[in-house]
Structure formats: C-alpha cells, structure tokens
Nucleic acid binder design. Sequence first.
DNA 1: TATTGTTATACTCTATAACTATA
DNA 2: TATAGTTATAGAGTATAACAATA
Lengths: 148, 148
Amino acid sequence: MATVFDPAFNYGQLPSLTGFALRRASLWDFAGFGDAVGDRSITPQRYSLLEIVSANPGLQQIQLADILGLSKAAASLTIDFWQKRGYLERRKGEQDRRSFGIYLTKSGKTALARLQERVQQHDTELTKSLSKDELRQLRTLLEKVYRH
Amino acid sequence: MATVFDPAFNYGQLPSLTGFALRRASLWDFAGFGDAVGDRSITPQRYSLLEIVSANPGLQQIQLADILGLSKAAASLTIDFWQKRGYLERRKGEQDRRSFGIYLTKSGKTALARLQERVQQHDTELTKSLSKDELRQLRTLLEKVYRH
DNA sequence: TATTGTTATACTCTATAACTATA
DNA sequence: TATAGTTATAGAGTATAACAATA
C-alpha cells in the first residue's frame, strides 16, 4: 500500500523535519490499523473513544468530545457507531437528566478485550524493528514532544 | 486548542501504544502548522508536494501522486491549488504529450523559500523540549519505524 | 489498447448552527 | 437563559469511474 518512502526520489527539505517523520510514521500505523483489527471501519479515533469509555465509565458525551478534541456532534456520531454494534450504551443521568453517562455493554467489554489484543499485536508489529530499549526511548521522546 | 493529553482522565491502554503516541505527536504538529506558515489552507500534505516538486523538477503528476500516496485526481487538485497561486506550472511534455512536467515558477521559488523558513521554525518549536542529542535519537528511531 | 490527466460524482469525516429537553 | 445532546447542513479531502487526448 501507501508509499511511505521511495529512495528513488529526492524529498528536499522534508527529511529534515521531525513533523514530517512523525506524520509518515503515524500514517504507516494508520494504514495497517483497520486490517489488523479485522474491520476497516474501526479507526484509531473510534477505538480511542471505546478505550476511554472503558477506562472512565459514565463520562458525559461532551467530556468525551473534549478529551478526543471533537465537536459534540462528532462525539455523538462516534458513540452511535459503537451503540449500533451493541458495544456502548447511553444511560440517562440521574441528577442531570439532560445528559447521558456512556458505558460499555457486556458484549462491548468482550469485544474490546479482543480488540485490545489485536491492537496490541499491531503495535508490536509496528515497532518490531526496535529493541526494547529503543522502544522505551522512542516513547519517552515522543512524550516530550506532545506533553510540552 | 486541541487537547493532546489531559491528566484528569484515564486513557486506559492507549498510553501503552506507540501508534497512539505517534498520532498525538503528529496531530500536535499538524495543529500548529497552518498558523506557523501564516495560512491555514497550507497543509503539510500540500507543502510536501511543493517541496517534492522543488527537489525533483519536471515530475509527472502520476509520479507525484505515487510519492505522496494520493490518487491521480487528488494530485491534480493539489497542483491546481498551487497553480492558482502562481507557484507551480504545468509544462506540456515534449516526448510524451499526454503528460505534464510540473515545475516551480519564479514566484513559487521565492514563496517556497519563505515557507521553508517558517516550517523550519515551526519544526524547531515542535521539538524545543529535546536536546540536540535527543532530537537526533528521535529521528533515528522514527526512521526505523517507517523505513521497515 | 493502454496511459496521462481532467472532470463528475460520491463517500467519509468534520464543524457550525438550529433544535429539543432539561436545568 | 444556559447547557447536553441530536439533527440538518455544508465544507474539506479523498477515491472511483467516465472521459479526452495521446501513445
């Protein structure tokens, strides 16, 4: 699939940019993600929401939107996506009846466990050319970049 | 803007994934790119095309599409974007009159030089929390990831 | 017949804004 | 009046397919 780097061409200043390297690595990851989890409609973005719901049961949709950097409309649609599959449910808030708490369903928990395995495998595959030590280094350096 | 990481929430398994870290760093870069170059319609993707044309004058559109992982239609539109600004031109091929060679115009060269400066600054800003040595390490490790 | 590039069309993902229901 | 969520709509950016020109 997607050409990530073709040595036959000159990339000009691009190889001197860390942003370009980050983008290529990220696209490379993205390109294999859907196949790795066995369903191309499951994107890293959608998977992230499921993970965050799992780790923080009962969040409001607007909070999920904030965490993921989405509009509330987009968050709503992402929740729809998982709800249609029976993995997430909206529970009417008891104190504040305008809002919902978002929860994994029982089958959502099972499905997520299976997804986590495959995502883990995919991630291991992504970084297979790195030693354990190099992997730890990479993660530390990446965190320094975005955790300003 | 965009929340990249909010310590108030639990990110579940996500922080254990290198792919997730790559994505966050890349989005963080992307988020500031348009403002850094002073024009939000200039995306990393569009900038990349301009760079590659500059470094490989005369490529066919289909080659640019290949390098950037785009359809030929998308490459055509990206070239349109720059051509409308007077930065790129299509020159009819002399041997093969079906195709064009893509070239920077004179004002394109000037504009690119200015863009390169700003992109460079943006990239420096992106990685300002890393020492020279750490930056070199990061680049080496990233290359290992996507240059399988 | 095959290939380069353009155009038409459609799809996905996103945001904004208008709306409903609660507060 | 303000807020949580939904829905309508529109705008990017992408791909595929049909097309024109040329090989």
